[in-house]
Amino acid sequence: MQSLKAGHLDASRWERRLQKELMSLMKEPPPGVEVDGDQAEQNLSLWTVHMKGAEGTLYEGESFQLQFKFSPKYPFDSPEVTFIGSNIPVHPHVYSNGHICLSILTDDWSPALSVQSVCLSIVSMLSSCKEKKRPPDNSFYVKTCNKNPKKTKWWYHDDSV
């Protein structure tokens, strides 16, 4: 007990946690989700996750890329998660610059959540979408926001959409 230090996870524990997360995501990925294992092995703090639009949803046949950035304070600090690449899903919670309005990525983050649970949340967010459209304030937000979506103070009004 005395050996435990305050602050963030020490490097080896941070690494072990991310390594374990990576392994389990590679072994048992949620449907339509695939992590770029080689890239993550090279740099544990930056992952790319490929995501396929689920069958029977508005995004069927599309594929997207998610970027996860982990600070040294992960998992006490939430990961920075954005859509990247040429195809950003058109969704009322996804801005055209890839920023996602999802409460577990900021306010409701818990260190007991994981990359896996974030992926599942995003898959379900896309799957439950009834109309493909951008957030109404998209252009204003994209022009004025900080590069880091975690710097945005989001108003989470409805998580069911």
Partner: peptide, 30 residues
């Protein structure tokens, strides 16, 4: 959770987020 993780979790809440009175359990949704 292990004591070390509790300590780090609480430290983050107190020092970075300035939360005192309303620190919730570290489990998601609790």
């Amino acid at each position: 959770f292990c004591m070390g993780c509790w300590c780090e979790y609480l430290t983050t809440k107190i020092m970075e987020e300035g939360v005192g009175q309303t620190i919730a359990c570290a489990a998601h949704g609790c």
